[in-house]
Amino acid sequence: MRSERRYTRRDVVKLSVAALLPGALLQGEAPAQGDTAVGQLLRPDLAGRPRGRVTDYQNDPFIVGIEGQLRCTCGCNLDVYTCRTTDFTCATSPAMHRELVGMLERGMTGEQILEAFVAQHGETVLMAPKKEGFNLAAYFVPGAAILTVGSALLWVLFRRSASAPELAAAGASERPTDLSAEEHAKLESELGRLE
């Protein structure tokens, strides 16, 4: 890095002034950025992709909710909201956000927006499969498998319990974990031997 660093005279002047004067005085040197100017970065090219100002849409819970259901198509596997607020090198998720905002401004509902994205990118743009047709298998197979095996297990256990009535009767008539005096004495004796 050191070998490549080249400061212009303008940089040197800026750094010197920054060292001597309060930051507020430097604001005059920055390019106009709306109502208030701010200091310029030394190497903006190394500070990541330039960002625009945050708009209200970016924090709108409704938009964030829809973005959470849409997958960024850059290949990152993240939803649009997570991608645009995490992977700051991605240009796809901000574009998808702008597209979504545009649709909302045109009066489209959440459902319509999702449909529009599906029409444009295919079903893979949704973070979870739609609950219809073959996709239902995705949602119901695991639960159905657990319930089926669980029911079978219960049935087997019930049959086993019923087929051992003498044991069941014995079990019901006593308190199994309360050892008898004799058993307790034996347990104590064994514990004593262990120590």
Binding site: V38, P44, R51, F88
Partner: peptide, 15 residues
Amino acid sequence: VYAGSVAGTEEAVYR
């Protein structure tokens, strides 16, 4: 999280 700066200035975008 510092997401980047607006137009290369000290105006920072955060989450």
